[in-house]
């Protein structure tokens, strides 16, 4: 699934505009699909039931509009990983306990395994990939490296997102507040000492 070059998804066009756009020589299947998507998007907006088959969904992931067709039952986590190749968020417990799937929705950390992709439309989704790159890491990412705050690394992207939100919301947090506030993520390797130091130091500096 490729990123959209502008903010308009194909089904946001009027059917008339779509028909005009593809011209009279359009392949019938493409034309049918476009019309169905437009109808599904319109039904969804007017509050009518859609699905259980795939419906068009637009997601704003790390500042880019992405579109996909997915069943309403697809979680945000599965949409990000399996459809949009945004694999920073990890699927571990898939039941809102371990934190490996943590993403930000409009700035709030949530478990993406417990949010439907269709419900995340219109909201700003940020994953670990959206916080920095290997060449230009965020302060939290850099501090994870400096403090050796990872071992196998599988929980790390979720922890990085959770730490970023925690440090932003808790300037000058005490160690106790760090431990409590970061309690929504688990690390089976037990790298908590390093992670706690990342959060504690950055909360003190206030420069996450």
């Amino acid at each position: 699934m490729s990123a959209m070059e502008n903010d308009q998804a194909p089904w946001d066009m009027s059917r008339r505009g779509f028909l005009k756009g593809v011209g009279t020589g359009a392949v019938a299947t493409g034309l049918m699909q476009g019309a169905t998507d437009a109808e599904a998007a319109s039904a969804l907006r007017s509050g009518k039931p859609v699905g259980p088959g795939a419906v068009p969904i637009t997601l704003n992931v790390n500042g880019t509009h992405r579109w996909l067709n997915a069943e309403p039952s697809v979680t945000l986590l599965d949409a990000l990983r399996n459809r949009l190749d945004t694999t920073g968020c990890k699927k571990v417990c898939d039941r809102g306990t371990c934190g490996a799937c943590t993403v930000m929705l409009d700035g709030d950390v949530v478990y993406s395994c417990s949010v439907l992709a269709i419900e995340a439309q219109g909201r700003k989704i940020v994953t670990a990939e959206g916080l920095g790159t290997p060449e230009a890491m965020s302060a939290v990412q850099e501090s994870f490296v400096e403090n050796d705050a990872l071992q196998c690394g599988f929980c790390t992207p979720g922890f990085v997102v959770a730490t970023t939100a925690f440090v932003r919301d808790h300037p000058n947090a005490t160690l106790e507040e760090v431990r409590e506030g970061m309690g929504g993520n688990l690390c089976r390797c037990g790298t908590y000492v390093g992670i706690t130091k990342v959060a504690y130091d950055l909360a003190k500096k206030g420069d996450a």
Partner: peptide, 19 residues
């Protein structure tokens, strides 16, 4: 997860009508 239909109604009345 088993599939399901989904609706996001715009009013309480519409929501009640779907239940």
């Amino acid at each position: 997860m088993k599939t399901f239909e989904y609706a996001s109604p715009n009013s309480l009345k519409d929501a009640l009508g779907l239940l």
